[in-house]
Design a protein around this nucleic acid. Structure first.
Lengths: 146, 146
DNA sequence: TTTTCCGAAACAACAAATGTTACGATATCT
DNA sequence: AGATATCGTAACATTTGTTGTTTCGGAAAA
């Protein structure tokens, strides 16, 4: 299965938007993500609904951040893209009334709940400002903008 | 995408195999899993390669456990089905040399590594015997075999 | 009024597990 | 030996969600 790359892409783009400043068109952002403008609008549209970015149509329009990077956590972006659980326990539903299937599922659910808690902790504490700082450190003087 | 239900199905089936005892045909197991024999052979074949079950062809053949349930952990079954990581961080690969993309990816990788560690801990400590015990407790006197 | 933009619908491409059919190999039973 | 029951395996269809693509319409600015 192709992994869902929307979260990584949005983190990537949001940091670039801050570093570059100003408004960015979907076309321009699509180049950053090596994809096309419609895909960009789909994901950024979800972020707009959660107050992370703002969009404006018409000539000179485009996208810009609605908050500063230190006010956006990874969890904010994740939630904008997907309200539900981050991890889904790979349970089976072949015989929902079978006590054995239920027991096996409950063990998996418990394990995944613990894993998700770990993820949530990381996502909650990590802001986009921190990602930007890592990027700048990695860059070592190379240009980060594109 | 459809979640990968092989682990849950195998846990389910292995416990049933112990409770029922003796050899089980793929056909019989397929009924437990509400699927068909070929799907069963695919997954159980992987478990056989890891010494969890044994198979025998020909009339009277079928599948049986190669170890007792308390010698099989959830991790053993997981590893038999899939050697690789259990969780895969949803990173992007749009511009692999971009420091910003790398920074975003590294944050996700770190979070997922922590989550996977949590999963591994649970998977390592949980044996199929424990799942069987939970199932029997849940059953409360109902029949667990089918 | 023309040019840029986003918004949204519609549909194809793709990936991975699952479902299904079919046939060969092998072991057991009569 | 021949019939029967099983696994082993190949080949292909189905399913489901993300991604990619085309094509409009609408709005804002020049």
């Amino acid at each position: 299965m192709r992994t869902d790359g929307r979260l990584a892409r949005m983190l990537h783009v949001l940091v670039h938007m801050e570093l570059l400043g100003g408004r960015k068109t979907s076309e321009r952002i699509a180049l950053m993500l090596n994809t096309n403008p419609v895909v960009v609008r789909r994901s950024l549209g979800a972020l707009r609904d959660r107050g992370i970015v703002e969009s404006e149509g018409g000539r000179g329009g485009g996208w810009k951040l609605a908050r500063s990077l230190d006010e956006i956590t990874v969890l904010d972006v994740q939630r904008a893209l997907n309200e539900g659980a981050i991890l889904v326990a790979p349970i089976s539903r072949d015989h929902p009334t079978c006590p054995v299937e239920c027991a096996a599922n409950s063990v998996l659910e418990e394990a995944y709940a613990a894993a998700e808690l770990e993820l949530m902790t990381k996502y909650t504490t990590m802001t986009l400002a921190q990602i930007a700082a890592i990027a700048l450190a990695n860059a070592n003087g190379q240009a980060v903008t594109q």
